[in-house]
């Protein structure tokens, strides 16, 4: 039985439709991406699935608990899911430990159990030395990791992460992504809401593209398996010998001539490009430029977005 089954979820605010016809399934232990531009209805979908708001139409089953039209999910549902909200949101005058204790108690844990789990999570996210500092003194990255710890405190079956890296500096982004990757490696069921394609590519097995309505669900690994593409511009047309030499390079998955250019499919661009260029030079080619092309996930995203805009959807 899937961890999440969403069927034709829809929600409006006044006359504005936030999302509609949102259907997908998430398997247990899967990291599922919810990808879309700002205002596409990602957070609205997440809030309905996390039991905070009610759908106007459609239904969902999350961790075995039902979400129905006109009725927000029950307290039992909220006990079984963890939500990382878009803004971390903590009580600044309380310490990191006190904040975790408070939310643990709201989840029904005894104070000592909340403290025990809080200390473990603080240690796990390298926040141990900051446990007794007021949250106001923590950096944005630390707060975000603390918010992830809060979402995990009651050991939920499903974790919803709403834009976990938004507004973070590169170092904090890397740390938070590493944390999510760690959770994914532990086979946690995660729904990751983002508009960062690289995040989806690194962390998710499948991604749903949403722009008001759900446009498509793609297996990310399959798209990524197509590898990176680079176009090599030559001074003259590519010869069959050049293509054959390129195809013999281990990190080159494929090579196709396109007039005075060759399009390469590479496993790891940073290793393969210098080798491929050296091979071409050895085969007598005069290379003018090497241009990285959009990766397949980006290609899929942008074409779906273009389709959404053509349909007048919130892309």
């Amino acid at each position: 039985m899937p961890a999440i089954e969403a069927y034709r979820l829809a929600r409006s605010f006044g006359s504005r439709r936030a999302c509609w016809d949102v259907s997908f399934e998430v398997e247990r232990g899967e990291v599922f991406g919810l990808l879309g531009p700002n205002g596409a209805g990602k957070t609205t979908t997440l809030r309905m699935l996390a039991g905070l708001t009610a759908p106007d139409a459609g239904s969902a089953r999350v961790a075995g608990e039902l979400v129905e039209a006109g009725r927000a999910g029950s307290a039992r549902l909220r006990r079984r899911v963890g939500l990382l909200t878009e803004s971390p949101g903590f009580y600044d005058r309380l310490t990191a430990r006190e904040n975790l204790r408070y939310f643990g108690r709201l989840h029904g844990l005894a104070a000592h159990e909340a403290d025990r789990r809080g200390s473990r999570l603080l240690g796990r996210f390298s926040l141990g030395p900051h446990a007794d500092r007021p949250v106001a003194e923590l950096s944005r990255g630390m707060k975000q990791k603390l918010a992830i710890a809060r979402a995990l405190l009651h050991e939920p079956e499903v974790i919803f992460l709403d834009e976990p890296t938004v507004g973070l500096d590169p170092e904090a982004t890397r740390e938070v992504r590493a944390t999510v990757a760690q959770l994914a490696a532990e086979r946690a069921t995660i729904v990751l809401c983002t508009h960062h394609l690289d995040e989806v590519e690194r962390l998710c097995s499948r991604a749903a593209f949403i722009a008001g309505r759900l446009l498509a669900v793609h297996p990310v690994r399959e798209l990524s398996a197509e590898g990176r593409r680079v176009r090599v511009d030559l001074s003259s047309a590519a010869s069959p010998e050049m293509l054959a030499a390129l195809r013999a390079v281990p990190s080159v998955r494929g090579a196709r001539a396109e007039g005075a250019a060759i399009v390469l499919w590479l496993e790891a661009a940073e290793v393969a490009v210098p080798t491929a260029l050296a091979t071409l030079a050895a085969a007598g080619a005069r290379v003018q430029a090497a241009v990285p092309l959009r990766d397949p996930l980006e290609e899929a995203y942008l074409s779906l977005l273009a389709q959404a805009r053509a349909e007048g959807l919130p892309g």
Binding site: A75, R76, R78, L83, T85, F90, Y91, H107
Partner: peptide
Amino acid sequence: ERHTLEPLLATPVS
């Protein structure tokens, strides 16, 4: 204002 409302409402507390 402190963005704590959503985390509060995400708990099972009545």
